Amino acid sequence: MALLHRATLRPSKLDLLTTWLPSRPWYQGPADADVLIQAAYRLDDPADEVGIETMLVGTTDGPVHQVPLTYRAAPLHGADESLVGTTEHSVLGTRWVYDGCADPAYAVALALAILTGTGQAEQYFEVDGRREVREPTMTVSVSGAGDTDLAPVGPLRRVVDEDTALIVTDSVELLVIRRPGTGDAGASGATLSGSWNGQTASVPLAYARPV
């Protein structure tokens, strides 16, 4: 479950992504174009400490890119190269925003979402002491999940940030499709798929394979 705040961010997520995205090797689009949000989904952090949101973003004429983001209350040690930026949250204060593919909290959450079949987190707003459901902006489903218990994911052993990002841990390999609908030829394993406005057919978003 993801409990959200009605808050302002300065700079906004889109401001951060507009600056950061053109520096990525898998980005396709003009460097000076405004970034648009197509859809987004969230995953649950089992430790309930890190915000985990995956955004589907693109430019007016370019492809859609999948960008997992993690929101932290303090810097992540050793992850300076994966820092998207910092932002001031009107409720929570300073947040450090990271590329999720380099954050171990994201690896744990994604592995659990795929291999246990839980998929995306339900989202709620806290309003006057009661919770209101936030309707999802996309449909996410899981296929091929096994019945075996998932071993602890542990630290990241290797991350290869290409069109299909590879995340390797001691117990699972994760593949994240940076441009959904492309770049996943030959990928296998339990699959997280999604569809959204403008993408009516469900396409693979990520794969997980126990090792």
Rank of each mutant, 00 (worst) to 15 (best):
G58F: 00
A33F: 02
M138V: 02
S82E: 08
I37E: 15
L43R: 06
G181Y: 12
A102V: 04
S202T: 07
E122C: 07
S188M: 04
Y27R: 05
L174N: 06
A109Q: 10
M138E: 10
R178Q: 06
M55V: 12
A2I: 09
A39R: 01
E162M: 07
T8Y: 15
V97E: 02
A40I: 05
L166F: 09
E132Y: 14
A2N: 12
R42M: 13
G154L: 08
A145K: 03
S12Y: 01
P46R: 05
H65K: 06
L175W: 15
L76I: 11
N197G: 03
G186E: 00
A7T: 11
A33E: 04
Q38C: 10
E53C: 10
A113W: 05
V108Y: 09
P11I: 06
T94G: 01
D103V: 02
P180G: 02
E88R: 15
V176E: 07
S193Q: 11
D61E: 11
L36K: 02
Q199R: 05
C101R: 11
V50N: 01
G117F: 11
R42N: 07
S23M: 05
R157T: 03
G51E: 11
H5M: 03
V159T: 15
S141N: 09
V50W: 02
V91C: 00
T87M: 13
A105P: 14
L92F: 08
R157F: 04
V153I: 14
R6M: 03
S193G: 14
L9W: 15
S171I: 14
V168K: 12
Y98E: 12
L43F: 06
L69V: 07
Q199M: 10
T148F: 07
E88G: 14
R95H: 04
S23R: 09
R134K: 09
A74W: 03
L92D: 01
R24D: 00
S193D: 08
A102T: 08
G146C: 10
L4F: 12
I177P: 08
V160E: 13
H89S: 07
L83S: 00
Y71N: 07
L192A: 02
R6A: 06
E122D: 15
T137W: 02
T70D: 05
E162F: 10
L16H: 09
Q123E: 15
A201E: 15
V64G: 00
V153R: 03
A73I: 05
G29R: 04
E53Q: 12
V127I: 13
P155C: 04
H89A: 07
L21Q: 05
V97Q: 03
A111F: 03
G117Q: 10
E126I: 00
L36V: 12
P30A: 07
Q199S: 04
P68Q: 06
R95C: 11
Y106E: 10
W96C: 08
G85M: 13
D128E: 11
R157G: 08
H5R: 06
Q28D: 11
E132K: 13
V153N: 12
T137N: 05
S171N: 13
T54G: 12
V176H: 03
N197W: 12
T8F: 15
F125I: 08
T200R: 15
S90D: 08
V142M: 09
D163G: 15
M138P: 04
R158Q: 09
